[in-house]
Design a protein around this nucleic acid. Sequence first.
DNA 1: TTGAAAGCGCTAACAC
DNA 2: GTGTTAGCGCTTTCAA
Lengths: 332, 332
Amino acid sequence: MRHVAALAGVGIKTVSRVMNEEPGVSESTRQKVLLASKQLNYELDVTAGSLRRSSRRTQTVGLLLPSVSNPFSAEIHRAMEDALSLKGVAVFAASLDDEPEREESMVRAFLGRRVDGMVLTPIASNQAHVIPEHSRDLPVVFIDREPVGLKADAVVTDNAVGGAKAAQHLYEVGHRKIGYLGDRTDIQTARERRRGFIDALSELGISTASIPVRENLHDVESARLAAIEILTSENPPTALFSSQNLVTFGCMRALRELGLNHTVALVGFDDFTLSDMVDPGVTVIAQHPEKIGALAAERLMARIEGDAQPPKTYIVETTMIIRGSGEIPPAA
Amino acid sequence: MRHVAALAGVGIKTVSRVMNEEPGVSESTRQKVLLASKQLNYELDVTAGSLRRSSRRTQTVGLLLPSVSNPFSAEIHRAMEDALSLKGVAVFAASLDDEPEREESMVRAFLGRRVDGMVLTPIASNQAHVIPEHSRDLPVVFIDREPVGLKADAVVTDNAVGGAKAAQHLYEVGHRKIGYLGDRTDIQTARERRRGFIDALSELGISTASIPVRENLHDVESARLAAIEILTSENPPTALFSSQNLVTFGCMRALRELGLNHTVALVGFDDFTLSDMVDPGVTVIAQHPEKIGALAAERLMARIEGDAQPPKTYIVETTMIIRGSGEIPPAA
DNA sequence: TTGAAAGCGCTAACAC
DNA sequence: GTGTTAGCGCTTTCAA
């Protein structure tokens, strides 16, 4: 900046004014400065500036996801980037990988870089570790799951209603015995999906005890085995509801292996690529990661810009997408 | 830091030494400082430190991808993160979205945040705009495509050999008339895949003129239409090779619509989720984004740490994965 | 409309 | 082993 000032024959503060597009600079000096900065290929140092700037903003936020390569997370990431890059805000993205210790160390890494705010997918059983910083008024928005042990904005899918939609749909198609295949029970979202599903069936007059439930399925293979077990049991269900993509894939495998893919109905939670290219197409309760990301970005920016209303949880609805597998009637 | 120093009853430089784990501090003072920093919930400001640090490193790198939500890109991102987070380096990720202007503006955003280096997927026809900075010795590694107009490290898939593998495989299965469905011809990788494919067939004695080629297919729908057109033409091919995922999906749709999915062979470039759940499973030439990301991260860090050997292009081989669609013999 | 001086949080250089 | 001073690139304050 000194060099640019010298070349343009002005003071360093004038260069600062021009680069920050502050008013109060004559057009002629502005041009001189612009020319000089172009010649020296000068670029304002955003972080150095934030050091002395009263707002202390670094125009940087942190984003913590289960994994940047998980399609659902990646879609959220993209939506946030779209909203934030317009405002000149850059995103630090990091993956958690189901390791609670990483949650804390990644948050520390963000804090050490003085992010203006963070969007986090909570994974540890308690998010109180963010509190000391949070009391520093660092804006935080949680996504996918609500935080435990601290109050903050959250943007989540309506998991319970999504589960209920699946139950109701399969009921309307005529099913009375529907199996549930679920994720780890210590995951809040998985519990909500099951709750919505079970409660809805219960309200429709189906006894809870009669619902085959298999949980703690964490990958395709465990889901496949659980589905096979359920489907080859004494009094097998005529339809399945799977709480998550990998579980859905496992169910698809099992149904196909048993030759039941056109006999037993399937509704999966969460949409996926090629869901319409398999046989039959898979009916899903779709989440809307792009809405979650956009809303999280908007809330975060509002907080950063001073919004002080009480923390709130924003709920994003699911959408049922009918593709065939969920419309198979029960075998006569 | 001043506050911590005051609380611990030491000088500010001692705090700096402790926080940076520099040697030459007695264990007792170290403990005092650690305690004080814990009490004040103090976190070193990485960026402020870089200002005066002789290396000027910010422990931050920029990553520019076609889109953070594209599975191939996301996998590269993940692999880079894995390698870099171990070294305490944070990643700024940004999406390009096929807009050449964004390439320049995102690079400027990275530079304004004083990243230690960048990994870029080039998209503009010329990357010379990075040169002025590059001459500042800012390390840059290109991925997926080699840069044009400047010399720098690059990590790319062996696209030509991948195309040749597909050609050879289909030839060995007995096909003599194989259609090619390709992406935009202004994309280097697409051109390479075609070149490898065509050259291999040519070497196998198939006249180039007899190969049906459809290009500039940018999405599923355009690919589907092109495939239908080719397959319903006078003398249709008995096999197809598609240069990219979306094109592969379009071909799958077309084959299924025409009832040819068990009659006409298909090999796709690039692997995808559920490729084994469709009917038939899709044989692909798989790329290895995790290797590309890991290698790019390794090269970038080496450059940042002073490696000054001449720029080099690293080539990551493809792997053919046989799943059924590519093994369908030509109709008698 | 412009610029000089102080200082943001930190590290380098050097003194003690 | 420890502290002091200067200064990184910038913005703030305030005077001209």
